[in-house]
Design a protein around this nucleic acid. Structure first.
Lengths: 142, 142
DNA sequence: AACTAGAATTAGAATTATTCTAATTAAACT
DNA sequence: AGTTTAATTAGAATAATTCTAATTCTAGTT
């Protein structure tokens, strides 16, 4: 349960919440909210279009800055498909991405319980993995 | 065994070889050779620098065109790490990539024999996978 | 409540990998 | 040899992202 902000004004950032050490400014909050509400792995442009509705006058540079800050503090993940614009994902649990070429949509793909990467890949003993990215392209059953 | 070109001139493209339907021009051959000899997943720039040594006057646009043609005919793979410049890989067997953050080098990672992706990922029955990309970042044991 | 120092935001310029364009050259096919 | 088609080329264009320098905001302090 998140502690409530005494003023109760939804537009005033809650100073009691710990955002992994990130100062939650108005702009960052809006960007973050939009990502939390999103289901479609939006690009920076997509996010910018949404933020503009709630906060006219926000600049694209700020959206990029906010996204970078959120990624840096591990509140969202940045996902890249080939050379397409980066997409952003509020799902922090370990997962991969499936790019449906029929619909163009991107779906999260969870790992099976107990699945160990070392059962799958030939990695030297003692390899330290800091980041894992699994991307699939194809079509889902219709 | 590849059929020999009757002239025996190493610079004359061998017209009898099947390159997955790709016409093997002088430029494409040089770019392809450089990739086959490479072990370090070069970028288009890297390849361009090498080609210039063997074929001064080749243009960067041509290198890009050649790489695109080679990728399109599945003679090489294009590999992307985040938003970095694309890299090219002559290894066509199914494999992933390990980005060693200490050295900056990229290593191929093979899959264990008999490892099935469906043992690892929660995918709907009947999903058709046309392309799979696995990228790891971390450090190798020293 | 004003003061200050540091951080965040902003508009617009700059960067950079890549793609496009239009002209030239080379190859393949009568 | 002549024609057609494809490949190469130089340079311009594009587009996502980052940078710059100025302004504004915030948090902490008086």
């Amino acid at each position: 349960m998140v502690k409530q902000n005494p003023e109760g004004n939804p537009h005033t950032p809650d100073k009691t919440q710990d955002w992994n050490g990130l100062r939650m400014t108005k702009q960052r909050r809006v960007v973050y909210d939009i990502l939390l509400e999103s289901t479609d792995h939006p690009t920076a442009q997509d996010v910018f279009l949404q933020t503009t509705k709630r906060m006219p006058g926000i600049s694209l540079a700020t959206v990029y800055n906010c996204l970078e800050a959120l990624v840096g503090h591990e509140l969202v993940r940045q996902v890249n498909f080939d050379r397409e614009p980066s997409r952003y994902c509020p799902n922090l649990s370990e997962h991969g991405h499936f790019h449906d070429v029929k619909t163009g949509r991107i779906h999260d793909v969870t790992f099976k319980d107990g699945a160990k990467l070392t059962d799958f890949l030939n990695l030297p003993e003692g390899t330290e993995i800091s980041d894992l990215e699994i991307t699939l392209r194809g079509t889902l059953p219709s």
